[in-house]
Computed example of a mutant assay.
Amino acid sequence: MTQIGDRLTDNEDLVGMNVIPIAALFSGDFICLDYREKKEPVVVIWFHEESEVFSPVTEKVAPNIIEFFEMLSE
């Protein structure tokens, strides 16, 4: 986590991360909970190769964790 911590936030004054990894994908990317815009996180894929320090590149997968789990059970 220490190697990617600065790439999982867009706020250099924040202690910790506001994009929290919950699962690793085969390519080095992660499924994450993204707390940057709302109190309840959206589920995103974080792309490690495109992301830079304080500039995470993500794509929304589901509007919340419940809908994400429902997608997995389909």
Rank of each mutant, 00 (worst) to 15 (best):
M1D: 10
T2S: 13
Q3K: 14
Q3W: 11
I4L: 15
I4W: 12
I4E: 08
I4S: 06
G5P: 00
G5N: 12
D6P: 08
D6G: 11
R7Q: 13
R7H: 08
T9C: 08
T9F: 03
D10A: 13
D10K: 09
N11F: 06
N11E: 06
E12L: 07
E12P: 14
D13S: 12
V15H: 13
M17V: 15
M17A: 11
V19W: 01
P21N: 05
P21S: 02
I22W: 05
I22Q: 01
A23H: 13
A24T: 12
A24N: 14
L25F: 07
F26T: 15
S27G: 07
G28R: 03
D29K: 02
D29P: 02
F30A: 09
F30M: 10
F30P: 04
I31A: 01
I31R: 02
I31K: 00
C32N: 03
C32H: 04
C32G: 03
L33M: 13
L33S: 03
D34H: 02
D34T: 00
R36F: 01
E37K: 15
K38L: 12
K38D: 14
K39F: 11
K39N: 14
K39I: 13
E40C: 03
E40T: 13
E40M: 05
V42C: 08
V43N: 00
V43T: 01
V44R: 08
V44P: 02
V44K: 07
V44T: 02
F47A: 03
F47S: 04
H48Q: 13
E49D: 15
E49K: 12
E50H: 11
S51Y: 05
V53S: 11
F54K: 01
F54A: 09
F54L: 04
P56N: 04
P56C: 01
P56H: 03
V57L: 07
V57H: 11
T58P: 04
K60I: 12
V61P: 07
V61E: 02
A62P: 04
A62F: 05
A62M: 06
P63I: 06
P63D: 12
P63K: 05
P63V: 09
N64H: 08
N64K: 06
I65F: 12
E67K: 06
E67D: 14
F68W: 10
F69A: 12
F69V: 11
M71R: 10
M71T: 03
L72Q: 09
S73I: 02
S73M: 12
